[in-house]
Design a protein around this nucleic acid. Sequence first.
DNA 1: GTCTATATCACGATAGAC
DNA 2: GTCTATCGTGATATAGAC
Lengths: 215, 215
Amino acid sequence: MLDVEKNYAGSRRDEIIDVATEMFLEHGFAGTSMAKLAEAIGIKKASFYHHFASKDDLFAACVPHGYGDALSRVQDVIASKGDPETKLRQAIDILYDTTISSPVGRMSHLIAEVSRTFPGVARAFHEGYVAKQRDLISEIVREGVASGTFKQMEERLLMHMLMGPIVTLSLSREMFIQFDDLDSHFPIEVLRDGHKDLLAFILTHVQKDKVDEFR
Amino acid sequence: MLDVEKNYAGSRRDEIIDVATEMFLEHGFAGTSMAKLAEAIGIKKASFYHHFASKDDLFAACVPHGYGDALSRVQDVIASKGDPETKLRQAIDILYDTTISSPVGRMSHLIAEVSRTFPGVARAFHEGYVAKQRDLISEIVREGVASGTFKQMEERLLMHMLMGPIVTLSLSREMFIQFDDLDSHFPIEVLRDGHKDLLAFILTHVQKDKVDEFR
DNA sequence: GTCTATATCACGATAGAC
DNA sequence: GTCTATCGTGATATAGAC
């Protein structure tokens, strides 16, 4: 069962999306030419236009690639047994993994790159991924609030404190990928575990009006 | 003293940097052509090459544009009178402002865009801005630890929790700039103030070994 | 320092045979 | 579905007069 080459089962379209996603991440949208892309796949670039109408069209197809997996992994956590804090910690582990290591999370700066000339992609990304992931996290926290484990917290502030550090860590690692000491500047495990502990502490101990006391 | 047009005092180079920075932010690196840039400045594109050797060269000159101001504003806070928590809150206000509203903070996804083909820019950005801003924040927190106001906290985790939400907020606002309800999805003041309160709470109450209790 | 004019080239996309 | 061949465009950059 050791297939180094993926088996695309006759679906050249899927193969193109896989290869293109990698190349977009590696070289950016403008930096990925149809010629180099075709070469990487092993077809002539004219053949490509049989599968996609344009380069924009291809990019729009690459962005949702991986949504499903990233969302269903968090859904699995929700469906599992366990107390809310354990579920939240598991969800955060998944978010670190998908945001830093899988295409769907690493696409952020590409979407920002094309958002001005190609606004539909950003909207699709928000509706198809960002909003859904937010709803899943909120569900876990609501469960915790209902059971008395967590204090109430404004949804947008929760996402700000939860996704903020993760997305920035992913962006930083893309931006400074050339650093040979990248892992010592931006260590995934250390930051992830510290982040989890602090979030759990906040959610279990800080009440909205209690925070204001310390102003 | 009402000059709508800036006075560049004979320095066309500075004028080019100002206009180019705006255009890079608006249209991305690849999306900004020398022709359109020249047109916006009011010269022919050939004339541009008298001031910069290449487009890369120009971009490299645009990135540090604004470092000084963003850093010196935090330095002013450090030099001012006030308790560490007040200073930290003031510094965070400045970081929200500069990261979201000024070019130096909004450049992140552009630097990520060009980092593969143009690695020098990312390194310069890290040394010239990221590391220095980190040192300034650390100085404030160290002051607080010395005076007993703050608990000790690992520097990288501190920056993860402090800069992470801010940078992601800035990136999100760039990415979803087309949304007409952008401010209700990503409200600056609400998130900033909540973030400040939570960070202050963490720094004044959470001890490293105390966090571990809640695992 | 700015101009006109141009070199050179890579890009996205298309036409039409097989 | 893939190919060869090519179109048209717009890009960075240069040459050389003023």
